[in-house]
């Protein structure tokens, strides 16, 4: 028994070694998974951000048609980078709504003038309340919402060229 116990440290180390070795050779999973996918949007009603364009309520996502919800801000540089891709999605017939985070009317108006305006509605979230309720940690982020107000996809960070295909597919599947 005593002799057997002396090998215990080596056995424990072997176990440790096996765990670590398996961890080392498994490809690292660095993707942040959304906690919102499959869940309904939280209830919200945001005032209009720019004149001539309505504000945004969660009810407007229950109209039977899938829509994109883009969380952005005029002070955010990646938002400028993704603007052309949003314009392209709009020309493909996908309706896009937006929540502007901690922003002002003149700044947003200027942003839309410079970078194009793909949005049907823009709500103003001055204190990031709705953003937090959405589980969004920064700008930009984009949600694909089906016709019943359920989130089917969340893209963290700016939309790139190669995201467009998956977004279009998600919208098509949500129909």
């Amino acid at each position: 028994m005593k002799r057997f116990a002396l090998w215990a440290p080596l056995a424990i180390f072997a176990l440790l070694f096996a765990v670590v070795a398996s961890g080392l050779f498994r490809p690292a999973d660095k993707v942040v998974r959304s906690a919102m996918v499959g869940k309904p949007l939280p209830d919200f009603a945001l005032p209009a951000m720019v004149p001539g364009k309505p504000g945004l309520t969660s009810a407007s996502f229950k109209g039977g048609q899938p829509r994109l919800l883009n969380v952005f801000a005029s002070w955010c540089v990646p938002c400028i980078a993704e603007a052309p891709h949003l314009m392209r999605l709009k020309t493909m017939g996908i309706p896009i709504d937006a929540i502007a985070i901690r922003d002002t009317t003149p700044a947003i108006a200027g942003f839309l003038r410079r970078n194009g305006d793909p949005y049907a509605r823009i709500g103003s979230d001055t204190a990031s309340r709705v953003q937090l309720a959405l589980g969004s940690s920064g700008v930009p982020e984009t949600f694909v919402v089906d016709g019943r107000g359920i989130v089917v996809k969340q893209i963290i960070g700016d939309i790139r060229e190669d995201n467009i295909g998956e977004i279009v597919q998600a919208v098509r599947e949500a129909r």
């Binding site: 002396l6 090998w7 440290p9 080596l10 180390f13 072997a14 070694f17």
Partner: peptide, 9 residues
């Protein structure tokens, strides 16, 4: 570590 622990045992 394995060597030292084996030597120990």
């Amino acid at each position: 570590i394995g060597g030292a622990l084996a030597l120990f045992a």
